[in-house]
């Protein structure tokens, strides 16, 4: 089967609606199809990969650890929009340390998060072949 550039655009907070959780389910399936996968985090979507998520008080499943497993599925391009972080008073330090292991470099851990500004994000999106937004 052909390989295409797939981008999953995450725009919503991790809890409150089911979009983020069900988006991750699609992302993991796309990895099984060996596609060229990127993720974008914009607007409230940046909250999906913040550190220290605790859902004990709201009766929702905490699925934030799944993002840490993405590297194991060869999903290693996570574009985060700087303006979306800034508008919410967040910095990259508030995000989880998401990495992938480079088998060509003695399994060295390398960062998966790529910080881009709004216009760079537009360029990345324009380069995609299939864009699914959640």
């Amino acid at each position: 089967m052909a390989t295409k550039k797939f981008m999953f655009v995450n725009r919503k907070a991790p809890y409150g609606t089911v979009y983020a959780l069900e988006s991750l389910e699609v992302v993991l399936i796309s990895a099984a199809f060996e596609q060229d996968v990127s993720l974008a985090f914009i607007d409230d979507g940046v909250y999906q990969i913040t550190k220290g998520q605790d859902t004990t008080g709201i009766g929702q499943k905490n699925f934030s650890n799944t993002y840490k497993a993405l590297g194991d599925y060869e999903i290693k391009k996570l574009y985060v929009e700087k303006e979306s972080l800034e508008e919410r008073g967040l910095t990259q330090d508030d995000l989880m340390d998401l990495v992938w292991e480079d088998e060509d470099d003695d399994w060295a851990e390398k960062p998966s998060i790529i910080m881009v500004n709004r216009s760079e994000m537009a360029d990345v999106m324009a380069d995609q072949e299939v864009t699914l937004s959640f």
Binding site: A2, F6, I29, A32, F33, E129, T131, S133
Partner: peptide
């Protein structure tokens, strides 16, 4: 059917169009 049908759809089609919120 499963989510694989969506990914296959994206691969096979010239354009994938999403309708949602």
């Amino acid at each position: 059917s499963g989510l694989g049908q969506l990914i296959e759809g994206g691969i096979e089609a010239d354009r994938t169009v999403v309708f949602g919120d």
